[in-house]
Design a protein around this nucleic acid. Structure first.
Lengths: 133, 133
DNA sequence: GTATATTTGTACGTATGTATA
DNA sequence: TTATACATACGTACAAATATA
């Protein structure tokens, strides 16, 4: 199997290689926050892979919270969010977990964004940060 | 298209319907912590869907941190983890994000598990909890 | 130790549905 | 309406990791 940019010879999955390349481009600023990526199909062509591999690569980046995708739109590099500060009360315990599907819908939480859990309250981690007094 | 348990007529994707069913079974204790699920192929047969839909359903549950999957093994319902308490220093800020691929490998973090970020330190959220003094 | 079966992972293809522009 | 783009869902084949005979 012949490909331009990536190869399955190295033992690393093609979609992982592509994800690594794009991750690096995001980190380097080549794909800055807000940048609209080429369409899946175009990216697949550019990397010389099938649609599955390209989608898997994008799904990986989405799961890391690096890009966001909406149906009908092209994927976009996530912007650094402005976080609202929440003051922590003494004696409370903080954990984090992924949101339930209901929470994702109700609170409009993107894929790859965890929830901060403080007692019985939850905060999407991209819009809130907790401060220890 | 005829299916036993789920249907694509309702406007909800088949894999989402299956994920909802299995999520409910986990919540109800029908699939208790540590429970080893049937093989993908068997599940697909049971639900009367293709492998793609079944895999998408399992991937959704994995992304929520409800099950864990290793190659060659069948998927398993995640056990409630024992969390080590970390004392928060006054003045620090707490956030959460998904781990990088490097962090996932180095610290053996499962899919669907976020990282707690305290200053320049990070903690896998399934093994640590933060305490406000 | 080796071979075989099982199971998940990866990668390709095709077709159709749904949301947006 | 039409075009574009992502989502869903079916199929096939082979690779890689694990367990078992």
């Amino acid at each position: 199997m012949v490909r331009d940019v990536v190869s399955s010879q190295g033992g690393v999955a093609v979609y992982r290689q592509i994800a690594a390349i794009m991750r690096s481009r995001i980190a380097q600023g080549e794909y800055p926050p807000g940048y609209v990526l080429p369409a899946e199909q175009d990216l697949a062509r550019q990397f010389g892979v099938g649609r599955d591999s390209m989608r898997d690569a994008l799904a990986a980046l989405r799961g890391e919270g690096l890009i966001e995708t909406r149906r009908g739109f092209r994927s976009k590099v996530r912007e650094a969010p402005v976080r609202t500060q929440v003051e922590l009360a003494p004696g409370t315990t903080v954990t984090a977990r992924m949101p339930t599907p209901e929470e994702r819908v109700e609170q409009d939480v993107f894929e790859g964004v965890p929830m901060l859990v403080v007692g019985d309250r939850t905060y999407p981690a991209d819009r809130f940060e907790l401060h220890v007094p």
